[in-house]
Amino acid sequence: MRTGYAWRYLPVGFPPWQTVYSHFQRWNRRGVTERILTELREQVRLAHDRHSAAPAGDHRFPVGAGRGHRAS
């Protein structure tokens, strides 16, 4: 979302990009996308046998992959 996802380059078989983007905007306003990310983090934690209440940290950038940083 923040990187300016190229909505016009959706795979063949998807509805028109405007339709998909409209759904995304609506879900994002209602908090659906954040709930999906929260649930996925929970499933990953459980799959790796970690306690479900462990802090998730900032899910936007992997460690060392923030803006302006290069992976070594």
Rank of each mutant, 00 (worst) to 15 (best):
W17V: 00
H59G: 12
R26V: 10
T38F: 12
S52P: 15
R8Q: 09
G31L: 02
W17S: 04
P11W: 03
A56H: 03
L40T: 11
A71N: 06
L10W: 03
P62L: 05
R29T: 08
R50G: 07
A6P: 00
R70N: 01
R70I: 00
Q25M: 11
L10T: 01
H23K: 10
P62K: 14
Q18E: 14
A53S: 12
S72P: 15
G68W: 07
T19Q: 08
R70F: 01
D49L: 12
A53N: 07
R67K: 13
H23M: 10
H51W: 13
I36N: 08
Q25K: 15
A6Y: 02
Y9F: 06
V63R: 13
G68N: 09
Y21E: 09
W17I: 00
P62D: 07
G4V: 01
D58A: 06
G31E: 04
A65V: 05
Y5A: 05
T38N: 14
Y9S: 08
R67A: 05
A6F: 00
H23I: 12
T33K: 04
V32R: 09
Q43P: 03
R50M: 15
R29I: 10
A6I: 00
F61E: 09
R2H: 12
A71I: 10
S72F: 10
Y5V: 03
F24N: 02
E34N: 14
G68M: 10
L46V: 13
R26A: 12
Q43Y: 02
S52H: 06
V12I: 07
V32T: 15
Q25G: 08
H48Q: 12
A47I: 02
W17R: 01
I36H: 14
R30N: 14
L40A: 11
R8P: 04
P55G: 06
F14K: 01
L37R: 14
R70D: 00
A47L: 06
H59M: 13
H23V: 14
Y5L: 06
A6H: 01
W17Q: 05
F14H: 06
Q18T: 15
Y21G: 06
P15K: 00
R60E: 13
R30A: 14
R60L: 09
P11H: 04
A47V: 02
F14Q: 05
R2C: 09
G68F: 13
G31S: 00
P62M: 08
A56P: 00
G57A: 09
G13E: 11
L37V: 13
L40E: 07
A54I: 12
W17F: 05
H48T: 06
R29S: 11
R30D: 15
P15D: 04
R29L: 10
V32A: 07
W27V: 03
A71W: 09
H59C: 12
R41W: 08
D49S: 11
G66P: 03
N28V: 02
H48M: 13
G31C: 03
P62N: 11
T38G: 14
A56M: 03
S72D: 11
L10C: 00
V63F: 02
Q18F: 10
Y9E: 14
F61K: 00
R67N: 05
M1S: 15
M1D: 13
E39I: 07
E39Y: 15
Q25L: 12
V20C: 02
L46I: 08
W17D: 04
L46P: 01
